[in-house]
Design a protein around this nucleic acid. Structure first.
Length: 464
RNA sequence: GGCCCCAUCGUCUAACGGUCAGGACGUAAGCUUUUCAAGCUUAAAAUCGGGGUUCGAUUCCCCGUGGGGUCACCA
């Protein structure tokens, strides 16, 4: 096998024994970014040698998850389809007596599993983020490497495939550090060269243990269901265990003016392309990083802000309760702006809806008359007068012009004159029936002229 | 337990041996304001401990301590 040794080739090698996990996705991402950055190749290798545990549905989940995230592979391989290749490597090892059948009584029959004759020596390898790491392989014993001549176990399969595929850089989770010496021993046995190793820190649960499927919702496609943006997830995953080369603040000695802070400081919000441009192995962190959902939400919101409105509309549509989809296009647009101010991620819409946050948009709210009054005010006559005036002013606006801006302009001077709280609070309350809600102008636009006036009249009637 | 890895605000992190230990998330307060949200401003908040080396350690070395990973005919 000859390969162009200059070209970077990385791989992501999941076993389809579970859904695509956020930790694995990040490993895939780092491999993808690194290959992209070096104009190299990114290989996806499905490690399905364990026929018992490997499932088609998981394979699909992994493929779908990667695609959703935009992590595209240049080539894909299945270990289950490479038996002939493996045999070509295993047979000679058997002949050279580097490996043997076990247990010993099977030796004659040429049955049982295959074990590697451990040369029992010290292995030192370089890790790109940690430097030299040394293991004494003696403690490993003669480890198992294949079920039979055609089905290698994990370590051998990895070594043969990495060699065959010309993998130059192995980027994987820190939990593989202790697997590395075994694999190096096998590389030496088959005459393969050693790739560069980059072990990235693990993503940890809040209790500092490895993130697990049992205790945390970690499947990538769950984030899709929740309505996270793939770019936000990628941004977040990259920032976990890696830091961008931030333009540092100017830290000259203090003088009287404080003008030295550069205004061009990174905010940590990156597109996929920017990430590819900026990524560097040397800035990878050594310690594990706790998964902080708040940060993910924040990053998601930041990316949400950058989405063009039309696309946002289409995306939000999918999360809206059926009642809200019936609105007029104009009301709909305003509603989306209202929603956007309150959410970090699309699934928040559902939570807000369930909390009764939106019902007043299509239902006359019920409330007690007392709540209509602003603060300490108690005078029904004054309030009635204000409401009457509001109705009168709003009536002057035409159906087509009935927007938040116009409504605001139209009643602003009256409200200011009478005390904004005295006018605006009852206005808003009559429309929403809630202590907390968006401002009355926006609600009015969403409700439309007719319904807005109707609700004001309803409030007016309740007064006496 | 053996082996391996790691250690800066609660969290993610910055700091060629010399900074007032910086930024971001979160939290709190203030501003704005008809309420909420959003936005803006500010604040509180960290170098695990002990020894070295050095004029000077977050930074280099050693020892503790703590945390994590890994020890399959799984990958």
């Amino acid at each position: 096998m000859t390969h162009n040794s200059n070209k970077v080739i990385t791989r992501f090698a999941p076993s389809p024994t579970g859904a695509l996990h956020i930790g694995s996705a990040r490993t895939a991402l780092f491999n993808f970014i690194f290959a992209k950055q070096n104009k190299g190749k990114f290989i996806l290798r499905i490690e399905d040698t364990d026929k018992e545990r490997s499932k088609k549905e998981y394979e699909k989940d992994i493929l779908d998850g990667l695609q959703w995230l935009g992590i595209e592979h240049d080539e894909i391989y299945y270990q289950s389809k490479r038996e002939d290749i493996y045999e070509k490597y295993i047979q000679p090892l058997l002949e050279k007596e580097i490996i043997y059948f076990s247990p010993p009584e099977e030796e004659e029959k040429k049955e049982g599993i295959l074990r590697f004759k451990n040369p029992n020596k010290k292995i030192t390898f370089n890790d790109e983020v940690r430097g030299d790491i040394t293991f004494d392989t003696t403690e490993l014993g003669d480890f198992a490497i294949a079920r039979d001549k055609q089905t290698p176990l994990y370590h051998l399969a990895v070594v043969i495939d990495d060699h065959e595929m010309g993998i130059t850089d192995v980027i994987r989770g820190e939990d593989h550090i202790s697997n590395t010496p075994r694999q190096i021993l096998l590389q030496e046995a088959i005459g393969a060269s050693r790739p560069r190793y980059t072990h990235i820190p693990l993503i940890l649960a809040p209790d500092r243990t490895k993130l697990s499927k049992r205790t945390n919702a970690t499947a990538i496609l769950d984030y899709k269901k929740e309505g996270y943006l793939p770019v936000a997830l990628i941004n977040f995953m990259t920032l976990l265990g890696w830091s961008p080369q931030v333009k540092t603040e100017n830290r000259q000695p203090i003088t009287d003016n404080k003008q030295q802070i550069t205004d061009d400081v990174d905010d940590g919000i990156f597109s996929a392309d920017e990430l590819v441009k900026r990524f560097s192995v040397s800035a990878i962190q050594k310690g594990g990083a706790i998964f902080d959902i708040n940060k993910l939400r924040f990053i998601n919101r930041e990316h949400l802000k950058k989405i063009p409105f039309e696309r946002l509309k289409a995306e939000i549509e999918l999360f809206l309760p059926s009642e809200m989809r019936k609105m007029t296009p104009q009301a709909h647009s305003v509603l989306i702006q209202v929603i956007m101010e309150k959410i970090d991620v699309f699934s928040d819409i559902e939570a807000l809806y369930k909390a009764g946050e939106f019902t007043y948009f299509w239902e006359q709210p019920t409330y007690t008359v007392e709540a209509l009054f602003w603060k300490e005010e108690k005078d029904s006559a004054t309030l009635a007068e204000n409401i009457d005036k509001l109705v009168q002013l709003l009536s002057e606006i035409s159906q087509e012009q009935f927007t938040a801006d116009v409504v605001k302009k139209h009643i602003w001077s009256y409200a200011t004159e009478r005390g904004r709280g005295s006018v605006l609070w009852p206005f808003r309350f009559a429309l929403s029936g809630k202590e907390k809600s968006p401002d009355p102008f926006v609600i009015a636009e969403i409700l439309g002229k007719e319904e807005t006036i109707r609700r004001l009249e309803y409030a007016r009637e309740k007064l006496f």
